[in-house]
Lab assay of single mutants.
Amino acid sequence: KKIKIKIKVYNPETKEVLELEIEVSEEEAEELAKKLAEELEKKGYKIEEVEI
């Protein structure tokens, strides 16, 4: 079964909002969402919402 992940991120420095969407297997979904959120935060983005 495929799971659709939508991530909306906001960069306070540039006032930019990015929306990302990807489909992955159920097993990958939670781990991938967690890794993406961590990487984006390292780059200065503030995570507003992660929906699985």
Score class of each variant (00 low, 15 high):
residue 43 K to R: 12
residue 1 K to A: 05
residue 4 K to A: 12
residue 25 S to F: 10
residue 9 V to N: 00
residue 23 E to N: 06
residue 18 L to H: 08
residue 7 I to T: 00
residue 14 T to F: 03
residue 16 E to W: 08
residue 47 I to L: 05
residue 3 I to F: 13
residue 27 E to L: 04
residue 31 E to S: 10
residue 15 K to S: 07
residue 19 E to H: 04
residue 7 I to Y: 12
residue 44 G to V: 00
residue 27 E to F: 10
residue 47 I to A: 02
residue 45 Y to R: 00
residue 37 A to C: 09
residue 34 K to N: 05
residue 47 I to H: 01
residue 7 I to A: 02
residue 45 Y to D: 01
residue 38 E to V: 12
residue 25 S to W: 10
residue 50 V to L: 13
residue 47 I to N: 01
residue 8 K to I: 11
residue 41 E to H: 06
residue 36 L to G: 01
residue 18 L to N: 06
residue 22 I to G: 02
residue 42 K to V: 06
residue 30 E to K: 09
residue 32 L to W: 10
residue 2 K to A: 05
residue 36 L to Y: 13
residue 24 V to M: 01
residue 36 L to M: 11
residue 2 K to G: 11
residue 24 V to W: 02
residue 11 N to I: 08
residue 19 E to T: 09
residue 30 E to G: 11
residue 42 K to W: 07
residue 42 K to A: 03
residue 16 E to Y: 08
residue 38 E to I: 06
residue 11 N to C: 15
residue 20 L to W: 10
residue 7 I to R: 00
residue 22 I to L: 07
residue 37 A to V: 14
residue 40 L to R: 00
residue 6 K to L: 04
residue 48 E to R: 05
residue 35 K to G: 07
residue 4 K to I: 11
residue 36 L to H: 04
residue 10 Y to C: 13
residue 24 V to F: 03
residue 1 K to W: 07
residue 29 A to S: 14
residue 50 V to R: 00
residue 37 A to I: 10
residue 17 V to D: 05
residue 5 I to Q: 00
residue 22 I to S: 03
residue 35 K to T: 11
residue 42 K to R: 12
residue 29 A to K: 04
residue 24 V to L: 03
residue 49 E to H: 07
residue 48 E to P: 02
residue 9 V to F: 14
residue 5 I to Y: 02
residue 51 E to D: 13
residue 29 A to M: 03
residue 17 V to Y: 13
residue 20 L to G: 03
residue 13 E to W: 09
residue 30 E to C: 14
residue 35 K to I: 06
residue 27 E to T: 05
residue 39 E to L: 08
residue 50 V to H: 02
residue 22 I to D: 03
residue 38 E to H: 10
residue 33 A to P: 04
residue 48 E to I: 13
residue 29 A to C: 12
residue 12 P to M: 10
residue 3 I to E: 03
residue 4 K to Q: 07
residue 20 L to E: 03
residue 29 A to E: 03
residue 2 K to Q: 10
residue 8 K to F: 02
residue 35 K to P: 00
residue 30 E to N: 14
residue 33 A to N: 01
residue 6 K to T: 03
residue 2 K to S: 10
residue 42 K to I: 06
residue 26 E to Q: 15
residue 16 E to V: 10
residue 22 I to T: 10
residue 37 A to D: 01
residue 10 Y to M: 10
residue 44 G to A: 01
residue 1 K to G: 12
residue 20 L to N: 02
residue 23 E to Y: 15
residue 40 L to P: 00
residue 30 E to L: 15
residue 1 K to S: 11
residue 6 K to Y: 11
residue 15 K to Y: 12
residue 3 I to N: 14
residue 4 K to H: 14
residue 5 I to H: 00
residue 30 E to Y: 10
residue 47 I to Q: 01
residue 36 L to D: 00
residue 45 Y to V: 01
residue 21 E to P: 00
residue 46 K to S: 08
residue 18 L to W: 05
residue 4 K to R: 09
residue 8 K to T: 12
residue 38 E to Y: 07
residue 13 E to V: 06
residue 9 V to W: 11
residue 11 N to V: 10
residue 45 Y to S: 01
residue 27 E to W: 05
residue 7 I to L: 12
residue 22 I to Q: 10
residue 10 Y to H: 14
residue 32 L to G: 05
residue 14 T to A: 05
residue 5 I to S: 00
residue 28 E to A: 11
residue 45 Y to N: 02
residue 28 E to W: 06
residue 48 E to S: 06
residue 24 V to N: 02
residue 26 E to P: 15
residue 11 N to A: 05
residue 31 E to I: 08
residue 43 K to C: 14
residue 25 S to Y: 15
residue 34 K to P: 02
residue 10 Y to Q: 05
residue 17 V to G: 06
residue 5 I to M: 04
residue 51 E to R: 08
residue 26 E to G: 05
residue 39 E to G: 02
residue 35 K to D: 05
residue 43 K to H: 07
residue 52 I to H: 03
residue 13 E to T: 15
residue 7 I to Q: 00
residue 30 E to R: 06
residue 7 I to H: 00
residue 2 K to E: 07
residue 24 V to E: 08
residue 5 I to R: 00
residue 35 K to A: 06
residue 49 E to Y: 13
residue 6 K to W: 04
residue 20 L to P: 00
residue 25 S to L: 09
residue 40 L to Y: 12
residue 9 V to H: 09
residue 51 E to Y: 15
residue 52 I to Y: 11
residue 15 K to L: 07
residue 29 A to V: 07
residue 19 E to Y: 09
residue 47 I to F: 02
residue 29 A to L: 01
residue 22 I to M: 15
residue 26 E to A: 13
residue 6 K to G: 02
residue 27 E to C: 13
residue 31 E to Y: 08
residue 6 K to E: 02
residue 45 Y to W: 03
residue 2 K to I: 12
residue 19 E to G: 03
residue 31 E to K: 12
residue 14 T to V: 05
residue 49 E to I: 12
residue 7 I to C: 03
residue 26 E to K: 08
residue 35 K to S: 07
residue 44 G to P: 00
residue 49 E to K: 05
residue 24 V to P: 02
residue 11 N to G: 02
residue 14 T to Q: 03
residue 27 E to N: 03
residue 43 K to D: 07
residue 44 G to Q: 00
residue 36 L to R: 01
residue 38 E to M: 15
residue 18 L to R: 02
residue 11 N to H: 12
residue 6 K to A: 03
residue 12 P to R: 05
residue 23 E to F: 14
residue 11 N to T: 07
residue 48 E to C: 15
residue 31 E to F: 15
residue 23 E to A: 08
residue 41 E to M: 11
residue 19 E to F: 12
residue 28 E to S: 13
residue 9 V to A: 08
residue 20 L to C: 11
residue 32 L to V: 12
residue 45 Y to F: 09
residue 24 V to Y: 04
residue 28 E to C: 14
residue 20 L to F: 12
residue 13 E to M: 14
residue 17 V to P: 02
residue 17 V to E: 10
residue 40 L to V: 02
residue 42 K to Y: 04
residue 35 K to W: 06
residue 27 E to Y: 07
residue 1 K to V: 11
residue 4 K to Y: 14
residue 22 I to C: 15
residue 41 E to G: 09
residue 52 I to P: 02
residue 49 E to S: 13
residue 30 E to M: 12
residue 21 E to W: 13
residue 23 E to W: 09
